[in-house]
């Protein structure tokens, strides 16, 4: 049920995002990765992603700014934020600005998948 879901994973920790993509691929998602906000913005313009998983704190353009720019072009794009902060403050702020939800790092992949399905209005397997 996941093979048509195109997910863009955005995080500057390359090993994290690459491994997460592999794990999603093993669950029959169609993931792509970006390791910076700039790269994510250029990829979003060209490819039809169903959903974006976006780290809040990255070098250069931070997650909230990336989300703002994506939402200005595609207000319906579901975005799940990732935060390495110990508090929920930044994640809540992101939700106020239009994120579907946020998850704390290190994350639980089953929780991420459940969030992806929920954001896309699908029922988890």
């Amino acid at each position: 049920m996941n093979d048509s879901i195109k997910v863009l994973l955005v995080d500057d920790e390359e090993e994290f995002v690459t491994t997460l993509a592999e794990r999603l691929e093993m669950r029959e998602f169609d993931p792509s990765i970006a390791t910076s906000g700039d790269q994510a913005l250029s990829m979003v313009q060209d490819k039809g992603f169903d959903l974006i998983v976006l780290d809040l704190m990255m070098p250069g353009i931070g997650g909230l700014e990336v989300m703002k720019q994506i939402k200005s072009v595609n207000p319906d794009m579901p975005i799940i934020l990732l935060t390495g902060q110990g508090s929920t403050k930044e994640g809540m702020e992101g939700m106020n600005q239009g994120a579907f939800d946020f998850l704390m790092k290190p994350l639980d992949i089953e929780e991420l998948i459940s969030q992806i399905h929920e954001a896309l209005g699908k029922t988890s397997a």
């Binding site: 090993e15 994290f16 491994t19 997460l20 794990r23 110990g86 790092k105 290190p106 992949i109």
Partner: peptide, 13 residues
């Protein structure tokens, strides 16, 4: 937390 996230995903894989 970034280090732990990488370890968690690698162990998960």
């Amino acid at each position: 937390k970034n280090i732990l996230a990488i370890i968690q995903e690698s162990a998960g894989l």
